[in-house]
Design a protein around this nucleic acid. Structure first.
Lengths: 127, 127
DNA sequence: CCCTAATTTGCGAATGATTTGCAAAATCAT
DNA sequence: ATGATTTTGCAAATCATTCGCAAATTAGGG
């Protein structure tokens, strides 16, 4: 049978994401772990990130440099508000999207199945 | 002085994007050109895509496989509705986003600076 | 047109992030 | 503890993208 083990390396990678609450690449996570004398191989960081993304516990995006980055987030459907100053990511629900979905159907004859949104700006703490 | 030349290879790459109206990777464009016996090197396809994206004539996204893909689009700020069936991309303006911007500020104390949105569904032609 | 200066192209080699194969180490249920 | 199963770490392999540089193309004045 295929079970998933709760291992120390996985918990350590996951802990970094929960603590930082901002988009991080595999290399960045690896570096952060190293700094705290925690040895987890880069491969394992990659594998753990894929796992978390697969379970929906983390979501991914590709940054300007082309690196894939991850944040922990709600399992339910929602969107992200990313602070341009501190990088912190807040979850945002999406009732307002109903309005947009309706407009898409009536103006474009387009039937909405799914959507992705990301907001950039300044968070409450940084203002 | 720094001028930009209007060359045959650039026009050919750009023509493929205008004709297809869907997200294509450098490799796909290169393959399409080959099929019509048009020889443009893969490097030039990459360089031309960067150029178009820089001028705002094309916009980029990274697909599931990790390849960067491009479509031609409006220069003005707008969003994309991508058909799950034929892949065609339609431009969508974004007045409705004002509602969301207001909600962000009042519920999250988040000041919106920019946003990105992408819609997936079925286009009028495919329904 | 023809010429020259400036920009592009194409090639192959270099890069850099991500993945993969495999033996050794860790985890889980008994 | 014990054995079956999953995971880890490492180094090597992938694969998209970038770069260097000589040869080819373009722009524009004469």
């Amino acid at each position: 049978m295929r079970t998933t083990y709760a291992t120390k390396p996985r918990e350590q990678v996951s802990a970094v994401l929960r603590r930082e609450k901002r988009y991080l690449s595999a290399a960045e996570i690896h570096a952060i772990l190293r700094k705290s004398r925690t040895n987890v191989s880069l491969s394992t960081v990659y594998r753990t990130l894929d796992l978390l993304a697969g379970k929906g516990e983390a979501s991914a995006r590709v940054d300007e440099r082309g690196e894939t980055t991850f944040v922990v987030c709600d399992q339910s459907h929602h969107h992200h508000a990313v602070c341009n100053t501190c990088g912190k990511v807040e979850d945002v629900s999406c009732e307002a999207i109903e309005t947009v979905a309706h407009a898409l159907r009536s103006h474009h004859g387009f039937k909405l199945a799914d959507h992705e949104m990301e907001f950039f700006g300044t968070c409450g703490a940084c203002r």
